[in-house]
């Protein structure tokens, strides 16, 4: 029953999210030194009251599990803390950087789909031919190449051969859409190619499987055009594993965006994360990590729901 499956899936994700928060909480507390000292740092952004309040917020005198509940409570009320380095509200910082990362993510997924799926289908149709082998190798190469390497190749090529092309210098989309897309072109291709390799592989495998299904053969025998069979029946059937893999790639996407944003100087979450890591800005690090992981859990949940809609055969595993 797909409904009870959804409920079960939803319920299961609650402990997962809770455990994620415990992991983050415990890891940050394992760092040598008093958390509040670390947070106050050497720069006096905080007034006496704020510092006292922070001690209260952390409840350092209380047992660790009580501290955890205090911490959770403040997190849930949207209080993600204050940056050690700028004194800014961490939640505001996250919201400022989020659009950049989202744009990179959407464009990369777009690139990966328009490259990965057609190549996968071609590969499946020409199974075991030269074309198929070629595409397979390309896929493997894509899978094996580090993102920063592909990115460097792009940067070198574009800076030598297309001097007028703007590689660096982020502008918001609404400020200057053309320049914005230009700046995002190389980063989203770099990241998109990595994911395309994964999508290509799974598209190929699941297309091969569904092309060999009986009903596809029936469709052929009914005299439906070859392309129609492929696109209408076989591809639709192969869609659900493809969506799942795309879902798994979300994690890869966020990991990759750290590298790509830093490489192409895009002021997104990934760059904020690395900057904060370099400055040991713990409240920001903690908030970004929690945010990314929880977003991934929720997106995977959504993908599961879509999956059940597309493929009604799913039952309680």
């Amino acid at each position: 029953m797909s409904f009870s499956y959804l409920v079960r899936r939803l319920l299961l994700s609650i402990p997962t999210i809770l455990i994620v928060t415990v992991i983050v909480f415990v890891l940050v507390r394992l760092v040598p030194g008093d958390v509040v000292d670390l947070i106050i740092g050497t720069q006096k952004f905080l007034s006496e009251e704020q510092i006292l309040k922070m001690y209260e917020d952390f409840g350092l005198d209380k047992p660790i599990f009580v501290q955890y509940f205090i911490w959770m409570k403040s997190m849930l009320s949207g209080n993600l803390g204050i940056s050690l380095r700028t004194g800014e509200d961490v939640a505001t910082m996250l919201l400022q950087r989020l659009p950049v990362t989202l744009e990179l993510a959407f464009l990369s997924i777009f690139v990966s789909i328009i490259i990965g799926i057609p190549l996968g289908i071609i590969s499946a149709r020409k199974k075991n031919t030269f074309v198929d082998n070629l595409i397979k190798v390309v896929g493997l190469v894509g899978l094996s190449s580090p993102a920063f390497w592909i990115g460097t190749i792009f940067i070198v090529i574009f800076s030598f051969y297309f001097e007028s092309f703007t590689i660096f210098g982020y502008v918001a989309f609404f400020e200057n859409p053309m320049k914005n897309l230009q700046v995002f072109l190389l980063p989203s291709f770099t990241l998109g190619l990595m994911i395309a390799a994964q999508i290509l592989r799974i598209t190929r495998t699941s297309m091969i499987e569904s092309l060999s299904m009986d009903y596809v053969k029936v469709a052929y025998s009914k005299g439906l055009g070859k392309n129609k069979v492929i696109y209408k029946h076989a591809f639709r059937n192969a869609l659900s594993p493809i969506i799942t893999v795309t879902g798994i790639q979300l994690g890869y996407l966020f990991g990759g965006s750290i590298v790509i944003e830093n490489m192409f100087a895009l002021p997104g979450l990934g760059r904020l994360l690395l900057q904060s890591v370099n400055q040991r800005d713990y409240p920001v690090i903690q908030a970004i990590i929690l945010f990314i992981v929880i977003v991934i859990i929720i997106l995977n949940l959504l993908i599961d729901f879509i999956y059940t809609i597309i493929d009604p055969r799913i039952t309680l595993g």
């Binding site: 402990p15 750290i258 990314i292 992981v293 991934i296």
Partner: peptide
Amino acid sequence: DAFFAFPSLVLALFI
């Protein structure tokens, strides 16, 4: 599951 939800690079970077 909880550990799995962390993208590998993100978790390694965090640690």
